[in-house]
Computed example of a mutant assay.
Amino acid sequence: MAIEKVREHFAQWHLQHKIQELSESSATVELAAQALGCEPERIAKTLSFLVNDGAILIVAAGDAKIDNAKYKSLFGTKAKMVAKEEVLERIGHDIGGVCPFGINEGVAVYLDESLKRFTTVFPACGSSNSAIELTIAELETYTPYKEWIDVCKGWND
C-alpha cells in the first residue's frame, strides 16, 4: 500500500507517527480541508503531469490553479496531466493520495510559490484518507524537490 511507502519515507527521520489517518476521505482539497479542520488553501495538493514522456509532480496550494502560459514557459510543453489509469504506475500513489513522499524513481518534484504564504500545509500521504502537517521548511526537507517554481494562478489575485 502506498501509505506504507510514505511511512517508510518518514521513518528515516522518525516522523512516521506524524502521519494522520483520517476516518473520512481526504481525496479532494475540499474533503481534506473539512476532515482536517483547516482552510482549503492550506491543503498542499500534488498534481501529476507528463513532460517528455516522464512524470513530474507539482505541489501547490489548494486554491491555486495551473497557469498554462507559465507552465509552458517553464517546461517547454503544454500542461498535460497523467491519465487517471496511469497515475499509480507512474507515480507510485493513486489519485486522492498522490504526494511527494515515497514516490517512484525518476519522478521530478517541484514546489509552487503559492505554498510559501503559509506557516504549515497539509500534503496527502499516499492514501485517500491521510495527511501530514508540515512547515514549509519541513516540506523542503522531507520532499525530494528540484526547485521552487511559479506556475500557478488564482491564489494571489
Score class of each variant (00 low, 15 high):
11 A>R: 15
124 A>H: 11
114 S>Q: 00
87 V>Y: 04
140 E>C: 06
143 T>Q: 06
157 D>G: 14
18 K>V: 04
138 E>I: 02
7 R>V: 07
81 M>H: 15
30 E>Y: 00
97 G>R: 12
69 A>P: 14
89 E>H: 12
106 G>E: 10
34 Q>H: 13
52 N>M: 03
126 G>S: 10
112 D>C: 07
78 K>D: 07
118 F>K: 00
44 A>E: 05
151 V>H: 06
87 V>N: 07
54 G>E: 15
149 I>M: 08
26 S>M: 11
68 N>E: 11
140 E>P: 04
128 S>Q: 10
54 G>V: 01
113 E>I: 02
12 Q>C: 05
126 G>K: 05
84 K>R: 15
121 V>N: 00
77 T>M: 13
82 V>D: 03
10 F>A: 04
56 I>A: 06
137 A>R: 05
36 L>W: 12
78 K>V: 06
15 L>R: 10
124 A>S: 14
69 A>V: 15
114 S>P: 05
109 V>D: 07
63 D>C: 01
68 N>I: 06
146 K>M: 15
55 A>N: 09
72 K>G: 02
40 P>D: 08
107 V>I: 11
126 G>W: 01
110 Y>V: 00
117 R>F: 03
18 K>N: 06
102 G>R: 02
96 G>W: 06
78 K>I: 05
95 I>L: 13
57 L>A: 02
42 R>P: 02
141 T>C: 08
109 V>T: 09
108 A>K: 15
155 W>L: 01
126 G>F: 04
112 D>W: 08
90 R>I: 00
40 P>T: 08
141 T>W: 09
151 V>P: 02
66 I>N: 05
16 Q>S: 10
51 V>R: 14
48 S>M: 01
100 P>E: 05
96 G>S: 07
101 F>A: 09
7 R>W: 06
104 N>I: 02
154 G>P: 08
88 L>T: 11
132 I>M: 04
90 R>M: 02
140 E>S: 07
45 K>M: 03
81 M>P: 13
15 L>F: 02
40 P>E: 03
147 E>F: 09
118 F>M: 00
103 I>C: 05
146 K>C: 06
144 P>A: 12
100 P>Q: 01
67 D>M: 13
112 D>K: 12
19 I>F: 03
129 N>K: 14
94 D>L: 03
153 K>Q: 12
123 P>Y: 00
90 R>W: 06
48 S>Q: 08
31 L>Y: 07
90 R>N: 03
155 W>F: 12
120 T>F: 10
62 G>F: 02
26 S>Y: 06
129 N>R: 12
88 L>K: 15
52 N>G: 02
36 L>P: 03
73 S>A: 15
6 V>T: 07
45 K>T: 00
5 K>W: 08
48 S>T: 02
45 K>W: 10
29 V>P: 07
26 S>C: 09
62 G>E: 11
80 K>V: 01
92 G>Y: 01
25 S>F: 09
6 V>F: 11
88 L>H: 14
16 Q>C: 05
98 V>I: 14
11 A>C: 04
133 E>H: 07
